[in-house]
Each structure stands twice: as structure tokens, then as C-alpha cells.
Amino acid sequence: MNPSAEDRLLQRYLDRELSADESAAFAGRLLTDATLRDRVQQAEALRAPLLAAAAAPTPRASMAFTQKVMAEVRRQPSREQLMRFDLSASTLRVCRRILLAAAVLCAIGAAALTGLFDRPGADTLQAAPGEVQQEIDRLDAAIRADQQRQEQGRPHGVPRRGN
């Protein structure tokens, strides 16, 4: 659920994120708007557990912490080397991306060339020999019927095409 403009305003008021003018205007509204006052009170009360958790004791670094970190730091390469590593790492990242993109394009091209993207049987007819013969016979019959119709309808003396 996205917050409404009123929700955002209330939240910013409680988080002390309003400007002095905005805050004063909001405080003015609180004096007259009981519903808004109620909402603010509920929101403040809900924050009590969070405030309790925030106030709970937190760990502190041990006395030797800084020395331990510095001991590790001394094992690190020099700043110049670190910068060079960074540069070569970023170059390597760019090269890897280019290589990856090239590999993907090559794979797509190879797949297209080998006909991997063609639908099987899209440009071929597959049928049993019996079915083929049946189809030839049907077409022959259709042609014969057509020729007969033409002969019956043609006036005498008109030569047949191709004769």
C-alpha cells in the first residue's frame, strides 16, 4: 500500500523532517483536528517498542580492535597497487561483459544458421505414400472434370489452348 499525501505528511512530522514553517502549520492543525491528533498519538505510541529497542545496550569494539584492523591493513598491497587492481578489475569486468555479449550473439547466429529456429516441417509436406497417391488421383480427377466442363461450354470452332 502506498502512503497517501496525508500519511507522508504525518510521517515526516513525526520524523522531524518538516521545515519549521511546515511543522508549525501541522502543529496548528493538530490543535483543531481531533482525528489527526488521534492518528499522531497512535503513531507515537507504536514507536515506543522501536525506541526501547534503539535504547537497548549495543556492543562496543574490543580494545584490540583497531590494532587488529591495522595489522590486516599492513598486509594489504600499496595504494598504487590497489588502484591498479581496481583498474584492471574494472577493465576485466568490461571485457567479460563484451565477451559474454559476443558469445550470446554468436550462439544466436549459429542457431539461426543451423536452422534451430525453423519450425520443424514448416516448409515440407509429410504424408504416407498411400496418401500422396490419393491426393494425386484427386487432383487428376479435378483436372479432368474441369477439362470436361470447359469442352462442354466452348463454342464449336474455338481451338483448345496449346493445340
Binding site: P49, L50, A55, R60, A61
Partner: peptide
């Protein structure tokens, strides 16, 4: 954690500690 924590922790009321634990 508490061994390395602020000195005020032992005096913190138990209720607040429980509330903090639940919230966490």
C-alpha cells in the same frame, strides 16, 4: 554483547529489556 556494553544495562528495567528483545 552485554559484557562489552554500556554500563547502564544492568540498571535498565526488565520490562524495557523485554520490549526491546521482542521488537528486535
Amino acid at each position: 554483547f552485554e559484557r562489552g556494553c554500556d554500563a547502564e544495562s544492568p540498571t535498565a528495567p526488565l520490562e524495557a529489556q523485554e520490549l526491546a528483545a521482542v521488537t528486535r
